[in-house]
Amino acid sequence: MSHLLEVKNLDVKFDTDEGRITAVENISLSVDQGEVLGIVGESGSGKSVTAKSIMKLNPGNTSYNEDAEIILDNENVLQFTSKQDLKKIRGGKVSMIFQEPMASFAPAIKIGAQMVEQLLIHKDINKHEAKSISINMLKRVGIADAEKRFNQYAFELSGGMRQRAMIAMALSTMPKLLLADEPTTALDVTIQAQVINLIKDIIKEYQMGVIFITHDLGVIAQVADHVAVMYLGSVVEKGPVNEILKNPKHPYTKGLLQALPDINNLDAPLSPIPGNIPSPLDRPTGCVFRTRCPHHNPEGKDGKIEMKLIEVKPGHWVDQCGIKCGQNG
């Protein structure tokens, strides 16, 4: 069976005044229907850039490599240039939920009008039908008095409610793929738990593929089926969620897990990953993590080992330099 989404050898580069920045290098990922792929990494690791490439939402100074492919539903998104084609993916086959719902709703247009507008663009229906679909969707995501909220502005809703409305809006066009970019980061834990449960229910109900981007490994453990760990534009480890969190191989994944305060083990010291994430302008050659790696082997340190994922167990892929370092640590 072919995958719903397949990203092959994707590089994303930005041309800036200070030179060409490699934001993402040689990424390959796939998502099946009804599956949640979690992408985890720190700020600047290229998670959002990867997701935005799928909708071709990156800014004008972006260049993609020629042999990259983003196959969505048997079509290569990167080949799309006409507005007509792009419209099919943006909000049609693919929807996106952003981190800050206040920034993603237009402040001076009623929520209902925004929901109806996108339905009219993507579906062959009239205004009346669009309104009833929208209100049903608002009810589905647990918004009380949906009819009233439909006629309100984004600022009149609380944070959790806004995020629910955002989810309702993203889902109302019945996309095949949902990109959720840090959808719970701005929320309080109790609201986060509500929103996570909602997203899980909805995935089950509509059987869509989801890419869930977050920096929070706990959230990943709760929602994802597969995980890709990104660092400085590269995937350093990927595999089934259980395998990655319980049996991590790459020193970066291990470091992330150790840096996380665990409420069930208060005696464990907090061990930060030493150093800072390098600027993408001087991206290390070879293994990208070698400047901060606590257990680097001599070859890896010189940058002589190229980045390449190797399958260590069925479905569990680790960067080849990381396998060696991981054994030392």
């Binding site: 834990v189 109790t190 738990a193 449960n197 929070d216 490994l217 706990g218 319980k246 409420i263």
Partner: peptide, 17 residues
Amino acid sequence: SSIPSIDPEKRSEAIEL
């Protein structure tokens, strides 16, 4: 209970408010 557990096998144990 709302803190998302790092253990994928312990899902939805949150007391939902």
